[in-house]
């Protein structure tokens, strides 16, 4: 007699925990007309809760040492490496060939490591000491923008999602990200990876559901500092950019395409969610060239 398999319940990931959607609603992504799983159809309130969690985590995450953030990203890669098989299986379920699925998982791991490596370097790249006139020391450094609300690429269920997440958090931001609607399985399994890595709860929050339903809420939430939209729908982009105006959110648009391409290994993805802070301080001028106060 064959064993009856246990079907996995996919929940959402908020503040380091796996709640069900508060709305109690589910949807079924399909491949070949076959339902893949029951996924949470996240609501506006789930998003709100995720933003609260992201805000709570933001200061602590931003103020961790760059070295420590780097290690945490690396740790995610390590844990993901150990669970490769599960991701390959899920990608296959969502329509990928096994070879492509393997490559996508491998690249996801590599991408985490790529951005892990940037954590303690991008600031050096983007910081300047500015030669101002007058006796002042003047320098500019990047600082995280804050909370980024992101729509992950629809077509790239794992690698596209991972690319966005790691480029956002490498720079000290926290994020709330909506997974691909049609390919959400890996996103929640990736959340399980996150939960067993050393990522503090709230730094990454992952929702599943319908992009159209959540679009306006992502754009209008006053405590979100930036919005990332992966896709090309002109109406979506216009709506988001209009809504973003009220609190001057930074909006960034990325493609919904081929995240296998090496161009997505790119430090400027980190700078997309950085603010430049410039600091001035006087330099005392005594002695030396005979200033003679």
């Amino acid at each position: 007699m064959s064993r009856i398999a246990i079907l996995k319940t996919y929940k959402i990931y908020i503040g380091g925990k796996f709640p069900r959607t508060e709305s109690g609603r589910f949807y079924q992504p399909k491949f070949d007309n076959k339902a893949l799983a029951n996924m949470c159809l996240s609501s506006r309130k789930d998003f709100r809760n995720a933003v609260v969690a992201a805000r709570k985590a933001q200061g602590g995450w931003a103020h961790k040492s760059a070295y420590n953030r780097s290690q945490i990203l690396y740790r995610i890669a390590e844990v993901l490496e150990g669970r490769k098989a599960q991701f390959v299986a899920e990608l296959a379920l969502q329509g990928s060939t096994e070879a492509l699925a393997k490559e996508e998982v491998n690249l996801s791991i590599d991408r985490l490591i790529y951005y892990a490596g940037w954590c303690d370097k991008y600031i050096q790249m983007y910081s300047t000491v500015n030669p101002v006139s007058g006796s002042y020391f003047n320098f500019s450094v990047p600082e995280p923008t804050g909370i980024v609300a992101a729509f992950a690429p629809e077509k790239s269920g794992l690698l596209g999602l991972v690319t966005q997440i790691c480029s956002i958090i490498a720079g000290g931001n926290t994020c709330v990200i909506l997974a691909s609607e049609s390919k959400p399985l890996c996103a929640i399994t990736f959340a399980e990876v996150l939960a067993t890595s050393d990522v503090p709860g709230g730094v990454i929050n992952i929702l599943t559901g319908n992009r159209a339903e959540l679009l306006t809420h992502f754009g209008s939430h006053m405590d979100v500092n930036a919005v990332l939209y992966c896709g090309a729908d002109k109406n979506d982009i216009k709506t988001l950019q209009e809504l973003a105006v009220e609190s001057m959110k930074r909006t960034r648009i990325r493609e919904d395409g081929d995240y296998f391409d090496a161009k997505h290994e790119n430090p400027y993805y980190i700078f997309d969610f950085q603010e430049t802070k410039t600091t001035w301080h006087p330099i005392e001028q005594i002695a030396g060239a005979g200033s003679g106060y």
């Binding site: 500015n130 101002v132 006139s133 002042y136 430049t276 410039t278 301080h281 006087p282």
Partner: peptide, 11 residues
């Protein structure tokens, strides 16, 4: 320890 200083080299 200063205020309202500006310079073309300073973002």
């Amino acid at each position: 320890n200063t205020f309202n200083k500006f310079d073309p080299a300073s973002p």
